[in-house]
C-alpha cells in the first residue's frame, strides 16, 4: 500500500518566548491508503494539532504535510480550500453542524460550496446507510447526539473524499452511540475505500483501528 498523506518534520509552537508551548516537535508520520488509523495520546499530547495540520485547518511552524507529494501547507488559500473540498472530509467531536440549516442542507453544504449539482443518488445512499433518512428535515437542535454525528459523517463523505479526518468523533457520545458511529466509520471505509485518520484518547476505540499511532509530548513515539 502506498502512502496517501505524510507529515514531515512537523513542528507547531503556540505562543512565544517563555510562554511558548511546543505542541508538535519534528513529527513525521505516513498514512497508508484505505487504512483506518487511530492517533492516540494523552490530553495535550498534540494529536488534535497533528490532525488539524493534516487537514490544513492550522498552519505549522515548520515542516510539510504532503498529499501524494503535494505539500498542502504551502498552498494559497484558494488552492487549499479547493483541495480540502475535494480530497478531505472532517468529522468533529462537537459535530459542528450549522444550526440554522436542516440535516439535509448540512449534508449538501459541501456540494453547494463546490458549486456542483448535488449527487442525490449518493445522498440517498449515504443517508440510508447512516440511518438518518427519516430525519433529514430536522434541525440539529432536534436531533440526538448520535444522529448529529451521523449527519456530520454524511456531510464529510458526500464529496467522496480521499481522506476522512475525525477529531474524537465519539468524544461527545455515550458508549452505545460511540460504538454505532465507529461501526459506521469502519463500514464506510470498507465500502468507500477512504483513508480514515481518527484522533481518540480511548484505547478501546483505538484498538479497533487497522493501525495505531501514539503521540506523546508532540512526538510520534509508536506506530
Amino acid at each position: 500500500m502506498s502512502s496517501v498523506v505524510a507529515a514531515k518534520d512537523l513542528c507547531k509552537t503556540y505562543g512565544t518566548g517563555e510562554n511558548a508551548v511546543n505542541a508538535l516537535r519534528d513529527c513525521s508520520v505516513q498514512f497508508e491508503e484505505k487504512q483506518f488509523t487511530a492517533i492516540i495520546g494523552t490530553s495535550g499530547s498534540g494529536k488534535s494539532t497533528l490532525l488539524h495540520l493534516l487537514g490544513g485547518l492550522d498552519t505549522a511552524s515548520s515542516g510539510e504535510v504532503c498529499y501524494q507529494e503535494k505539500n498542502i501547507l504551502s498552498m494559497k488559500d484558494t488552492e487549499l480550500s479547493a483541495f480540502r473540498r475535494t480530497h478531505i472530509g472532517f468529522v468533529f467531536q462537537f459535530f459542528d453542524l450549522i444550526p440554522e440549516l436542516t440535516a439535509k442542507e448540512n449534508i449538501l453544504l459541501p456540494s453547494m460550496i463546490d458549486s456542483k449539482k448535488p449527487d442525490m443518488e449518493r445522498f440517498s445512499q449515504l443517508t440510508e446507510k447512516l440511518g438518518i433518512a427519516g430525519r433529514l428535515t430536522h434541525y440539529p437542535s432536534e436531533l440526538s447526539g448520535g444522529q448529529q454525528q451521523r449527519v456530520a459523517i454524511a456531510r464529510a463523505l458526500i464529496q467522496k473524499p480521499q481522506v476522512l479526518l475525525c477529531d474524537e468523533p465519539t468524544g461527545n457520545l455515550d458508549s452505545a452511540s460511540s460504538q454505532e458511529v465507529l461501526s459506521l466509520l469502519h463500514q464506510m471505509q470498507k465500502e468507500e475505500g477512504q483513508t480514515i485518520i481518527m484522533v481518540t484518547h480511548d484505547p478501546d476505540i483505538a484498538a479497533q483501528a487497522d493501525r495505531v499511532v501514539r503521540i506523546e509530548d508532540g512526538r510520534v513515539i509508536q506506530q
Binding site: D77, F83, R85, T86, I98, P110, I113, R155
Partner: peptide, 10 residues
Amino acid sequence: ILRSMGLSRR
C-alpha cells in the same frame, strides 16, 4: 465550519 469544508476566503 464552512471554511473547513473547503469554502475559500474569496
